[in-house]
Design a protein around this nucleic acid. Structure first.
Length: 234
DNA sequence: TATCTGATCGACT
DNA sequence: GTCGATCAGATAG
């Protein structure tokens, strides 16, 4: 079953952990710089705002995360690690900071554009949008797209691009669940099994527990806090 | 104001 | 398996 337009907004008006598995298998399409890319979602994570220590909205609303507190169907893009963008779709009710992080998917349309955007590392195949930063990059999403309404037919209004969600199922397809990837602290524990993926999909990113940073005992250069501190992974 | 963290990725050994 | 890149925002003082 397919829902578009206001029907999609209705489906998003539930907590992220309910909406997230439903988005598996659905298609997210963007039109940025006049080029369209469509990705079939195979892996997502749910973040539940004020009750979720792993959520950007856990400590309340700030200028950075204000889009996260917006109405369901709002796009929230954040910038992390100094170089990566990650894209979320806001769910729940207005003000709850509930959102679904799009972690991985299969590029079903606009492969050439996605490969070009991915740059040197870009190559057609299941790895093209395997990982939240890769997926956001393939879709051409950056901070300037934060706050865009999803699937409201607003082409041209915002100027920076459009995003649409299609083929959202009434019920979640058969899927697996587990702890979230890369979430440090209690939010990454088994109490929050809010990662959802389609079993057997080659585009699903490999599970990685949160990195544990090792502090330098001496001083560090200003502005370069995290260099060389990657902890054990995998 | 200064310091530190982070929902990552990819190159390198 | 290991580690460097790179910057906006949050927090402590």
């Amino acid at each position: 079953m397919t829902h578009t337009g206001s029907a999609t907004a209705h489906l998003l008006a539930e907590p992220a952990r309910v909406v997230a598995p439903r988005l598996l298998g659905s298609t997210v399409s963007t039109c940025v710089d006049g080029r369209t890319v469509s990705i079939r979602l195979t892996e997502v994570e749910a973040y539940e705002g004020g009750i979720d220590p792993g959520s950007h909205g856990y400590r309340g609303r700030t200028a950075r995360n204000s889009a996260l507190f917006g109405p369901p169907g709002t796009l929230y893009v954040y910038f992390t690690y100094g170089m990566h963008h990650c894209a979320n779709i806001v769910c729940g009710t207005d003000g709850t900071a509930s959102a679904v992080l799009m972690r991985a998917g299969e590029v079903v349309s606009g492969v050439d554009t996605a490969v070009a955007r991915r740059g040197r590392a870009g190559a057609p195949g299941p790895q093209l949008a395997s990982g939240p930063a890769r997926l956001a990059q393939a879709l051409g999403l950056t901070l300037e797209h934060t706050g865009l309404p999803v699937d409201h037919g607003t082409a041209g209004i915002h100027g920076v691009g459009t995003i649409a969600l299609e083929h959202v199922a009434d019920r979640a397809p058969l899927h697996s669940t587990g702890p979230r990837t890369g979430v440090s602290g209690p939010g990454g524990g088994p109490e929050y099994p809010w990662r959802f993926w389609l079993e057997g999909e080659r585009s699903v990113s490999r599970y990685r527990p949160a990195a544990v940073r090792r502090r330098e005992s001496g001083g560090r250069p200003a502005g370069g806090a995290a260099a060389g501190a990657a902890g054990p992974r995998g």
